[in-house]
Design a protein around this nucleic acid. Structure first.
Length: 274
DNA sequence: CCAATTGTTATTTA
DNA sequence: ATAAATAACAATTG
């Protein structure tokens, strides 16, 4: 499920544990989510440590602990973070749990495409700092997008939008939503866009990220109980998977097909191949 | 049994 | 050599 705004939503959930100590670490040893990570070191360093704070970048989260410990979590395709009661008993796919006095912070991931990273030191580790700067940062300029599209000239736009090195945090549904809002066909080749279309694409990337973060991750104190709860029906989001779905803007039928290796939904009346 | 799934990476192909 | 396409990963659901 998780793309940019959903990842932020889940990070805020674990925010309930900020300022509290970790009494114990429970994990499913040997599971794929720990590939490349020393669970022994992780348990040793996190047990007794205080969860100090956290941040989100692209589809990843970084949790900072006392003693110079850094925990990275990627939710993959099916990961989620939850908060459970202190007496909660881990279910089958609850691969990683931080036990605190008042709650348990649970990482659940049935398909295990996600992962848990760990590092120690005074500064955030390289696997965190090398994540591309956010779409909502100053560095995400029209020129940067134009240059990237030029280098990926022969790839369909849908595939290009999924490339994390330039569009960090964008996933399948957000890519479709951006192209739909920009009224650009997902099969258009990246090199074929006119300057005005590049500007539109750039603008709608930023717009969607901003609106999705507001809508899904919530503002400040408030968190919706269900992360999709407040997505309005005017978005493509709700219609992209329904058979016989209609475009919320044109009221004409939507189409689904594989583009760039992923199932893609678009509104032919609005997004022309030309 | 077959096909599907909101992600990433290694391998193969062009 | 570079970039695009494909396969693989794992579990579950329809």
């Amino acid at each position: 499920m998780p793309e940019l705004a959903e990842v932020e939503f889940f990070r805020k959930r674990w925010g309930a544990g900020h300022g509290a100590k970790v009494l114990a670490v429970r994990l499913h040893e040997g599971k794929k989510v720990f590939r490349g990570t020393s669970t022994a070191l992780l348990k040793k360093k996190l047990t007794g440590a205080m969860l100090l704070g956290s941040e989100t970048a692209a589809k990843q989260m970084l949790f900072r602990f006392s003693g110079g410990a850094w925990l990275g979590i990627h939710l993959g395709m099916s990961g989620a973070l939850r908060v459970e009661a202190p007496d909660y008993v881990a279910a089958k796919h609850d691969h990683f749990i931080l036990v605190q006095r008042q709650r348990q912070l649970v990482f659940n991931d049935p398909r295990m495409f996600g992962g848990v990273l760990f590092a120690t030191g005074p500064k955030p580790p390289a696997w965190w700092t090398r994540i591309a700067p956010a779409i909502l940062s100053k560095t995400f300029t029209v020129e940067a997008v134009a240059n990237f599209l030029k280098r990926r000239a022969r790839a369909p736009l849908k595939a290009v939008l999924l490339m994390q090195e330039r569009f960090p945090g964008i996933g399948n549904w957000m890519a479709d939503e951006v192209l739909w809002r920009a009224a650009i066909h997902p099969k258009r080749l990246a090199g074929s866009l006119k300057p005005a279309e590049v500007r539109t694409l750039h603008r709608e990337c930023r717009n969607l990220c901003r609106i999705a973060l507001d809508t899904i991750a919530g503002q400040g104190r408030y968190l919706p109980p269900n992360l999709n709860h407040h997505i309005p029906p005017s978005w493509l989001f709700w219609h992209r998977w329904e058979n016989g779905g209609l475009c919320p803007r044109t009221k004409k039928p939507l189409v689904r097909a594989e583009v760039g290796g992923r199932t893609t939904c678009w509104s032919p009346a609005r997004q022309k191949l030309r």
